Simulated assay, not measured.
Amino acid sequence: MIAISDLKSGMTFEQDGKLIRVMEASHHKPGKGNTVMRMKLKDVRTGSTTDTTMRPDDKVKKAYIEGKDVQYLYAQDDMANFMDLETYEQYEIPTSVIEDELKFMLENMEVKIQFYGTEVIGITLPSTVVLEVKETQPSIKGATVSGSGKPAIMETGVVVNVPDFIEAGEKLEINTQECTYLKRISK
């Protein structure tokens, strides 16, 4: 059992037969009354999200999630295919379950598949990925890093706000957790 106040973003717990992942969690002290935890929760199996408040001293059963290194092969129809790097066993995950993660994935990329017992429940991306800019507005002469930026469409289709000096064809390091530009990779 784990106290609600100890839950952090990314943790998974069991409640009423459901597998719940914490998307966001924060303490909130209203003007009157006791402190509560405001949380955005996602049902791992159905993908539905809810915003809720809970008492910090309540307890839930922590779900033990195991990870296995795999290689992303391809997506076909509504399934994404992965291969275990040690046993060459292949796994299929519905694209609807990992649609946010697919925005950062290229074929042959290494990720971790998450297992709850023998059930595949999702994937874990590396914290950063290198993607090529496919389309963006022309660069502005004299632009600096501190400018307001512009949107850029990356090779996977994800849109990232980048500095004004970035041009199409450049490779960028992107933070997968926040979908933000980190740096330009030298050619």
Rank of each mutant, 00 (worst) to 15 (best):
Q114L: 15
M83T: 14
H28Y: 14
A75H: 06
D100K: 11
K61T: 14
T176Y: 01
V160W: 01
N81G: 10
A80V: 03
E110T: 13
R21S: 14
R21K: 13
I153F: 03
F13D: 00
K112N: 07
V70T: 09
I93H: 01
G31L: 14
K134V: 00
I140K: 05
M154F: 10
A168E: 12
Q15K: 08
N81M: 11
V159P: 00
L102W: 11
L125S: 03
K112F: 14
M11N: 02
K183C: 10
I20M: 11
E89F: 03
E14W: 02
I113M: 15
R45C: 04
E99F: 15
N161G: 05
M54E: 02
G147A: 13
E170V: 05
P56C: 02
T124D: 13
L131E: 00
V97E: 11
C179A: 14
T87H: 02
S127Q: 13
K134C: 06
I123F: 06
T136I: 09
K40E: 12
R55D: 12
T46K: 00
L102N: 07
F82D: 00
G17V: 08
V111P: 01
F165Y: 15
G47N: 01
V129T: 02
T87Y: 00
V130E: 14
M39I: 08
E24K: 12
Q90T: 15
M105K: 02
G157E: 03
E173Y: 08
E14C: 08
D58W: 07
G147M: 06
N161S: 10
N161T: 13
E170I: 02
T87W: 04
F104L: 07
V70L: 07
K42H: 04
M1L: 10
M11L: 09
A80R: 00
Y116Q: 13
D84H: 01
R184V: 10
K183R: 15
M23H: 05
G117V: 06
G157T: 07
K42D: 13
M23W: 06
N108T: 10
K61N: 08
P56H: 01
D57H: 14
P126M: 01
G67Y: 08
T52K: 08
E107M: 05
D100H: 11
G147N: 13
V44Y: 02
Q114K: 11
K59I: 02
